[in-house]
Design a protein around this nucleic acid. Structure first.
Lengths: 234, 234
DNA sequence: GTCGATATTTTGTCTAGACATTATCGGCTG
DNA sequence: CAGCCGATAATGTCTAGACAAAATATCGAC
């Protein structure tokens, strides 16, 4: 926190963010910074390396270190467990299972829409509704690979959201998210909104050690949920 | 890339991701790893510190290092410049200005909706349309603080997207994003879709050195754009 | 002047220690 | 048994070097 390297780092970061060192400018060499701060090179190196990892500067051997030119806005969005979202709002949370089926994946018509994401021959298909403060909050359609999560076959998801359960049982996943806007369509009835109401749709494909584990499609009424991303590159 | 510390790091990471070391498990101490890999402690320390920064492990003095229990899914989404999105698709890009006005911010009715985001007394208000391959792609409404970006007053935005211009002139910002689903509403005409068509709305508030710079609201037809986030924590 | 080999500068990685910090453990005391 | 308190074990930071790798700069030959 107040270690020397972090002080050096925020010192340099301040000069960049304030514009004192504009994009493209060359910053002092490690050697010069060592002389300036009166410390070992490793200490300066650690500070500069962290700035480079954060994308604020670019380093080139022999040439030096330069303030980077921003090109993309990256934002970190957190997609927490839905139960956690609702708990944070101070509302009561409930999960209701609508349908559950165990099937051979080839029997699932949608298998083809999951291009390149083959969950194995044995798949659990679950439909459920997340309810916040008595109002429908999110309609969820989920497929779970029983090869990757065999315990799921013996678990009762009638009141437990499969997302929370999976997070606790098949953790440390790799995932891909897709966020789109669409109309509620057939899901409008369960969500108690019109078929033409706009919804935020989050799709997530999840792997564990490169083995597909689960796919989920979540539909949020547009007026009940939004994603907020604070972006403080550091 | 193939330095010793990165090899140690991916070695440990593999044991975590494969489940060999489940969440909550204690991983070997730095001392033990030094003995195992036959290197200096700094080298092991660098590898472990990187894993801790990535959130894969938690470290507690005296107690040791433990595989973290995942609780939130964080995803890094990149929100690139719209021109870059379209260029990446290999389509032609065009920006069309619809309206431009310089105003006292109190004269803008919406000022109140930007709670806590006061752009200063002198504001530039711009409406424009991003066009990809001849079709409307994004409707944009933007406010620029002339206190933060005085050069904007003398710039011609009739064909230059203000977003690209700002990125090059007032870089290294801090930002907040909000992503919602809504209907096109009045914007439906400019986008050549129905008023009830679902849209992805991205709002972004931008600061530079804690000074508000710009606010933008972008409306994407739901079927023409989606956000994709690859999540490979590392 | 142009090309190419060599020197130099700058960053990247690593070592073998030192001391600081802090939470836990175990024992001592009341 | 409860509570305090010091020993200890683990991480956190830092040093003063060393060598490696890479890219630029320089100088010489032609």
């Amino acid at each position: 926190m107040s270690s020397l390297d972090s002080r050096i780092r925020s010192d340099l970061e301040g000069k960049i963010r304030s514009g004192e060192w504009p994009p493209g400018a060359r910053i002092p060499t490690e050697h010069e910074l060592v002389a300036h701060y009166g410390c070992a090179r490793m200490t300066v190196h650690k500070a500069i390396t962290a700035l480079a990892a954060a994308g604020l500067i670019e380093r080139r051997k022999k040439a030096g270190s330069f303030v980077a030119r921003p090109h993309v806005q990256t934002a970190v969005i957190e997609i927490p467990d839905i139960a956690a979202i609702i708990a944070a709002r101070g509302e009561t949370y409930l999960f209701v299972q609508l349908q559950s089926a165990r099937a051979r994946s080839t029997a699932l018509g949608e298998a083809s829409s999951l291009a390149g994401f083959y969950l194995g021959p044995d798949v659990l298909a679950l439909d459920g509704l997340h309810v916040a403060a008595g109002r429908p909050f999110c309609l969820e359609h989920r497929l779970i690979s029983l090869a990757a999560a065999p315990e799921a076959a013996d678990t009762d998801f009638s009141a437990t959201a499969p997302g929370s359960w999976l997070l606790g049982h098949i953790p440390w996943t790799q995932a891909r998210h897709r966020i789109t806007a669409c109309v509620a369509g057939a899901g409008g009835e369960a969500l108690q909104i019109g078929r033409n109401a706009p919804c935020l749709q989050v799709e997530r494909w999840t792997w564990r050690a490169s083995q597909p584990v689960t796919f989920v499609r979540q539909l949020f009424p547009g007026d009940r949920y939004d994603l907020v991303a604070e972006f403080t590159p550091d």
